[in-house]
Each structure stands twice: as C-alpha cells, then as structure tokens.
C-alpha cells in the first residue's frame, strides 16, 4: 500500500481522485482541503508521497511543500504537483522545487494511479 497525502481545495476533485485511486487497491489516501490542514495531518500520518494542488487559497502548493520539507520525516518524501497551469516554465520551476512529477489538470482519473507509480519509480532511481 502506497500512502498518499492529497492536498486539494476543490472537494469534487478530491472525491474523484479518492475514487480513482481507490480502484486499484494499491493506495491508502488521506486528503486535506488546505496546506495548513495538511501540516497538522502529517503529525499523525507520514505519507510515502505528497500529491499537491498548486493553486490554493491560503497556503499554495509550493508553500505547503516548503513547510513540509522542514519536517524531518518529510524531508525526502517525493512530491507530485497537480496544476491547471502546466506551462514549460512552471513545470521546470516545480521540478526545481523538488517535484517528482507534474500532472496537468484535467487529469485522466483512470491513469492517475499509474502516473503516480511511474513517478515514484523514476524518483527512486535518481
């Protein structure tokens, strides 16, 4: 079981991701509606991968990741961003922040699990 912490402010998108990732039975998904909430959650739940929306009110995905990196247990946890603004420059910028993958929205729910697995594999190899 791969433990995922999914941070996304849009409840509908959270539900779709939950459903999609639940299909294979390979993932344990914990969700949070904001970066602030996610920072509280990680005190009790240490994920294998962070799935972060970029644009969120309050703390953005980037800021959330920066704060999480300060927590020793999450220092090297692979992070995957989901963004509606998947321009080359932004993708590069997110990768420089340490993103293992950048998935553009709208994403294909049936492929989401495989995309995460592939990203984790590639991240492990580097």
């Amino acid at each position: 079981m791969i433990k995922i912490l999914h941070v996304e402010d849009d409840a509908d998108i959270r539900e779709i991701a939950q459903l999609a990732l639940g299909l294979s039975g390979d993932f344990e998904v914990v969700q949070s509606a904001s970066g602030e909430e996610a920072l509280l959650l990680v005190q009790a739940f240490v994920p294998d991968v962070l799935l972060l929306d970029v644009m969120m009110p309050g703390m953005t995905g980037r800021q959330t990741l920066e704060r999480m990196r300060q927590i020793p247990a999450l220092e090297k946890t692979p992070a995957i961003f989901m963004t509606a603004r998947a321009q080359n420059s932004e993708v590069e910028e997110l990768r420089e922040l340490g993103a293992a993958e950048v998935i553009s929205k709208p994403f294909d729910p049936m492929l989401l699990g495989d995309q995460i697995k592939a990203a984790l594999k590639a991240y492990a190899e580097t």
Binding site: D12, I13, I16, A84, K105, P106, P109
Partner: peptide, 17 residues
C-alpha cells in the same frame, strides 16, 4: 482559461470514472 480547468477536471473525471 485556468479557472475553467478546475470544474472541467471534475466533469471529465466523473464521466471518465
């Protein structure tokens, strides 16, 4: 355009599932 992507993500995702 980007704002429209969020609802589209849900619409497409729900129908895809």
């Amino acid at each position: 355009s980007h704002e429209l992507r969020s609802p589209l993500t849900s619409i497409k995702g729900a129908m895809g599932l």
